[in-house]
Write a protein that binds this DNA or RNA. Structure first.
Lengths: 198, 198
DNA sequence: ATGGTGATTGCACAAACTGTCATCAGGAGG
DNA sequence: CCTCCTGATGACAGTTTGTGCAATCACCAT
């Protein structure tokens, strides 16, 4: 028999997501969240360094997942391909949590404070990825570039994945985004539709 | 004869940069900054929505500068080239403020709270750029991708620019970063000697 | 002089954190 | 069975951030 109700972090996270969804982020106090989880404000701050972090618990695990996947990529892979392969490896992870991921994404998109935190988290993943790439012999600048480009592709792909009414996989959307890249950076494109004058 | 000392925003910014540099961000209270600028805490919050914003005054102007430059890019330019040309257009802007920009960059790099803010600002620029690209007929996904890729290149280039002991121009570093891109993404049918300069 | 304007300020207050110390059930070891 | 240790929890006081509201005060147009 546990001395306290188990999984305090999980309960706090759940309470926070519910309250943020119901009344919005700034209309919810840390006290509200704690109470709903059957805990106190002080205990909330024992588990999370600040109010935003409640939606980012376990992000280190995610980082580790990615980093390991990059390490596992064949040494022959070009930097960007290694990074994208790593992101594709998260497909199963997300597939099992689609409703959760969607709600969380909606919350974060709706609240600038949360978006800020999301961005640093992504940058921190990118930084970790870049470091692994460097260990694989990629120059510092190229490593940054590859990891950030990967981030951008993930962002675009993930956005599509969240909105996709057909529930296609993350891998599908990542590859679609990757293909877009060629339209952006690649050889001259003959697309001149939409002549919005001035 | 002005009724108050002029340029409150400038004085607050200067005071904040000095104090953040001296004692660090979190060791500096808003009251400290205001006092040093000869004002009160309340007045600080009349000018800035929060403590972090003091280092980001005028960022809308910067956004506008970029957006206008993208609009001015030739319609034949590929998305990424249009974006990069726009960032290159900020060269003069930064060249005149190198010491300031370096100190500010060091501060932001050293303080996660400030980095968060920096990232949303960059994302907001990227979003504005993406919108312009869409108006130019680029698909939504490609526009996001091009603008974010541009951001990544700017980040890498700017970082090099700040560290460059030889004080080479931002344009120089942007182009160097751009060239790195090819090492990263690889070129399926590369070898085309096509000129990529805008 | 009269009243409007707009930057500034004082005051009160909610909410976000922080540091410190007390509590209290269970497990380890005697 | 008893005791000590541990670690999550909570009470409490204090600082800092940020907001709303009203008052001030010199300049300025009429």
């Amino acid at each position: 028999m546990a001395r306290w109700e188990p999984n305090a972090v999980g309960r706090l996270t759940e309470a926070a997501m519910a309250l943020f969804t119901e009344r919005g982020y700034s209309q919810t106090t840390v006290g509200d969240i704690a109470t709903r989880a059957g805990l106190t404000e002080r205990t909330f701050f024992n588990h999370f360094s600040d109010k935003r972090e409640v939606l980012f618990a376990g992000s280190e695990l995610f980082t580790q997942l990615i980093v390991d996947a990059v390490r596992a990529a064949p040494r022959s892979a070009k930097p960007l391909d290694a990074v994208l392969a790593a992101y594709e490896a998260t497909d199963a992870f997300f597939e099992g949590r689609r409703p959760f991921a969607r709600q969380r994404y909606a919350l974060i998109s709706a609240h600038p404070e949360l978006q800020e935190r999301e961005l640093v988290k992504m940058l921190s993943v990118a930084a970790a990825v870049a470091e692994v790439l460097e260990q694989r012999g990629v120059s510092k600048a190229a490593a940054s570039l590859a990891s950030e480009l990967g981030s951008a592709i993930l962002r675009v792909g993930f956005d599509q994945w969240c909105k996709d009414k057909k529930d296609r996989s993350l891998v599908f959307h990542l590859r679609a985004a990757r293909r877009q890249l060629e339209a952006v950076v690649g050889r001259p494109q003959a697309r001149s539709r939409a002549r919005t004058t001035a």
